[in-house]
């Protein structure tokens, strides 16, 4: 049974849950079995935000898993919180331009990417989370990119209609994220 377990964690406001929603919507459209739990606490805003996503070919059993296949961490606090989801089979991804610390866990692979820096310098800080989405898609290869684009259309279509250049910007961000992983895996 193939099942990909993804943990995506960052600071509230980084768009973690928005990206997770696009990801699981895309998976649903691709006819995958999906189970998505947004982490939520007492506060409405702030704090570490974690999304637990499972994408598989057969009905998902456990709602919460103990170890992720891929764990993406977008802040120092997220790195601290997510240690528990990492084991020797986990691919760990973190943002080198946001985090001051480096994940140290024993794992399959650690990939550092300066997504926030790139977003700021080359695209727009507002598409930082879409770069991350590209990173996840490339790192997991869990579904074809077309489903992701159509889920993005679903989530952001209204904004795209108002400002058509936004669509191009988001696609660029998505591709940029995918390339970041491909590049780092070549090294």
């Amino acid at each position: 049974m193939t099942r990909t377990k993804i943990v995506l964690a960052g600071e509230g406001g980084q768009g973690v849950q928005s990206v997770a929603k696009i990801l699981v919507e895309a998976g649903y459209e691709a006819n995958k079995e999906i189970l998505y739990i947004p982490n939520f606490g007492v506060e409405q805003r702030g704090g570490v935000s974690i999304a637990f996503c499972q994408i598989g070919d057969e009905k998902i059993g456990e709602p919460r898993f103990s170890k992720g296949d891929i764990v993406i961490m977008l802040s120092d606090r997220a790195i601290e919180r997510c240690q528990t989801y990492i084991d020797k089979n986990t691919v760990v991804i973190y943002d080198t331009s946001v985090c001051h610390t480096k994940p140290t866990a024993e794992c399959k692979e650690i990939i550092g990417i300066p997504a926030n820096q790139i977003a700021h310098d080359e695209l727009s800080v507002r598409v930082f989370n879409i770069i991350i989405l590209g990173v996840i898609i490339e790192a997991t290869k869990v579904m074809p990119i077309d489903y992701v684009k159509s889920a993005m259309e679903h989530a952001l279509g209204k904004k795209f209609d108002k400002k058509p250049e936004l669509r191009e910007l988001n696609y660029k961000a998505l591709e940029c994220g995918m390339k970041l992983v491909a590049k780092s895996q070549c090294v």
Binding site: E33, I34, F40
Partner: peptide
């Protein structure tokens, strides 16, 4: 709460 907040088909 998991069942309430999680998404699945």
């Amino acid at each position: 709460g998991y069942q309430g907040k999680m998404r699945e088909p």
